[in-house]
Amino acid sequence: MSETILRVERLRVAYDHPRGVVRAVDDVSFSLRPHERFGLAGESGSGKSTMALAILRMIKRPGRIEGGEVWLGDTALSGLDTDRMRALRLAGIAMVPQGSMNSLNPVVRIRDQIGDALADHGVGLKGRALAERVRDLLAQVGLPPDVARKYPHELSGGMKQRACIAIAICLRPKVIIADEPTSALDVVVQKQVMQTLGRVQQDLGAAIILVGHDMGLMAQFVDRLGIMYAGRLVEVAPIRDIITAPRHPYTRMLIESLPSLEQRGGLRGIPGLAPLLRELPPGCAFHPRCPAATERCRSEKPAVRAMGEDATVACHLA
């Protein structure tokens, strides 16, 4: 297999619940090549965001990482102590937060929020040196220099998201995890922000994990797409293959649900609801909604199988 920059191995995240353990991420493995754009798509509650947090080891109680390993290059993250892990956040793996969130401190100027990040990673810049660094970073994400002096409430949603990207790239990370970076932004701004994200990723030579549920956005942006369902990564394939020839029935129905310009008419959805993680059906978690489900699907949990070099699927029928 080719060189990888980030490798997630059999990662499991559980939430302790009074009525039993809920597994939000169940045995997920995938790997990221340098410069690769990897998409992670799925319904709400499928474990995408939990995955993102688990990679950064930021799962909070009652959640916990139950098992598995994340490798950044040759470093196993579970072996790092708290302070080394802290230092690795942003410098090694950076996060771009959800667009709908108030991810910037409301009472601190943008310049100082970048300065904080630099200072706590040992880059103690002051005065003019800091101002120059901040101006460069803002320019990289297409923001004018006067944004440095501003507070978050003085910026628009798109500008705030750019500011977050500027923070995320300030230490030139190897991997960027963008968790629905354009949610709550309108499509025009969404396109601009995604272009910015794509450009800085190329400048940095970083790999990126794009978490989201917008299949159209995924199709335009990522090289490879992973589909999550009920905490499991049910299919991974290069984006072209997965759009034209999805292997997992869930992926297929997901793609069929997209409205198309050629075929007008009613919108098609996937009947049923995503299952409660607390009460997963036996066998394949998708079988109650799957039109092709067989007896085997109802009783036996499908294993993840490799389909060529960069594709996997977890389905008895594929």
Binding site: L56, R86, L90, Q98, M101, V108, H121, C164
Partner: peptide, 23 residues
């Protein structure tokens, strides 16, 4: 959210406590 993001930024606990939470 900004506290979560502060943690993702790899800030020291003291910075998060004083400048992001207490402030």
């Amino acid at each position: 959210d900004y506290v979560t993001f502060a943690e993702a930024k790899g800030l020291r606990s003291l910075t998060i406590f004083m400048r992001y939470c207490m402030r």
